[in-house]
Amino acid sequence: MNEGIVVIVRSIIGFFTLLIFARLLGKQQISQLTFFDYVLGITIGSIAASLSVDLSSRAWPHWIGLATWAVIVLGLQWFTLKCRPAAKYIVGEPTIVIMNGQIMEDAMRNMRYTLGDVLEQLRDKGIFDLNQVSFAVVETNGKLSVLLKPEFLPATPKDLNLTTQSSGLSTQLIYDGLIINENLKQANVDRLWLENELKNKGINHISEVFLATIDSSGSLYFDTYQDHIKQS
């Protein structure tokens, strides 16, 4: 038995199985994970690690364990999506800890959440004065969402009666010195137009460009490989 080769093959199996299952389980980011999701991730990762290097047991049971955990998570995700009471029961609900500027002590006690935790998360959001807070909600992932009192909310262009233009999403036209033809079509521009635009900006060849994007208003942003940063 060549242990090295067996470990390599088992690692490849573990790695790609994990990749496939992770893609299957969705796009939640670490910051959005609840505590249970976090523990779940560690458990699945630990099973994958055993599958990879624990030669004292067969790969198959580990793989089945990995698949079972992934399927259960997938099943729960589907169930919570379809059944709202189940979602409340399984995932939990956001809890209001400050309402109309009043601290909800009972709610905090039920969650084993201290005033220090609330103040720390408020400071993390740049709020140092409790007088500014209208509502604060602890989300199911443990993050604090805060609504400031109207007088402390930042002014928006609407408040100032300013007209704004929607910039929309930008589309990449050049990446790493190569034109993305699909995106050119999508943005309703052609290669000639792009080359002319770049020439006007003093760029003679596309290969000099690291990134070029176009927004919905047709304005072009580009970045060349050559950076001209003035040394102070």
Partner: peptide, 15 residues
């Protein structure tokens, strides 16, 4: 037989 079963079997059994 060993190369054929090494990805299936556990090391202790092979040893």
């Amino acid at each position: 037989a060993m190369p054929r079963i090494q990805y299936h079997a556990e090391m202790n059994a092979i040893d």
